[in-house]
Simulated scan of single mutants.
Amino acid sequence: MSLLSRTFQLATHLVPSQRTFSTTLGMTEKATFAAGCFWGVEHMYNKYFKKDGITTKVGYIGGKVDNPTYKQVCSGATDHAEALEITFDPKRVEYAKLVEFFYNMHDPTTLNAQGPDRGTQYRSAIFYHSPEQKEIAEKVTAEVQEKHYKGKKIVTEIVPAGVFYDAETYHQLYLEKNPSGYECPSHFLRW
Rank of each mutant, 00 (worst) to 15 (best):
N112Y: 04
Q133H: 07
Y60L: 07
N46M: 13
D107T: 06
Q9D: 06
V93I: 15
H43K: 12
A83C: 08
L3M: 09
A142W: 07
A125Y: 03
D107S: 09
I158P: 07
D52Q: 15
L10R: 09
T120M: 04
I158T: 06
A142F: 11
S75P: 02
K57S: 12
K51E: 15
F8G: 03
K64A: 08
W39M: 05
S17I: 09
Y103W: 09
T110V: 11
G40Y: 04
E143K: 15
R190M: 14
E183N: 13
D166R: 10
K57V: 07
R19L: 11
V144G: 02
C74F: 05
L84D: 02
T23L: 12
E42V: 05
N178V: 14
H187C: 06
G59F: 08
N46V: 05
H13F: 09
V140E: 00
T120K: 04
Y45M: 01
F21V: 14
R92D: 14
K134I: 01
A83R: 03
W191Y: 14
V159Q: 11
D66K: 12
L14C: 06
Y128A: 04
M1L: 08
P116K: 04
I54N: 01
G115F: 02
V58W: 01
I154K: 10
S2R: 09
H148K: 15
Q9A: 13
F164K: 02
I126D: 00
Y103V: 00
W39G: 00
E135C: 05
D117H: 06
M27N: 03
G151D: 15
G115R: 01
T28K: 10
A81P: 01
G162Q: 05
G115E: 00
Q72E: 15
A142Y: 11
A142I: 11
T69R: 04
M105R: 03
V15P: 00
M27F: 09
Q133G: 08
V163H: 07
Q18D: 13
L10D: 09
L111Y: 11
T55Q: 06
E143Q: 15
A83Q: 05
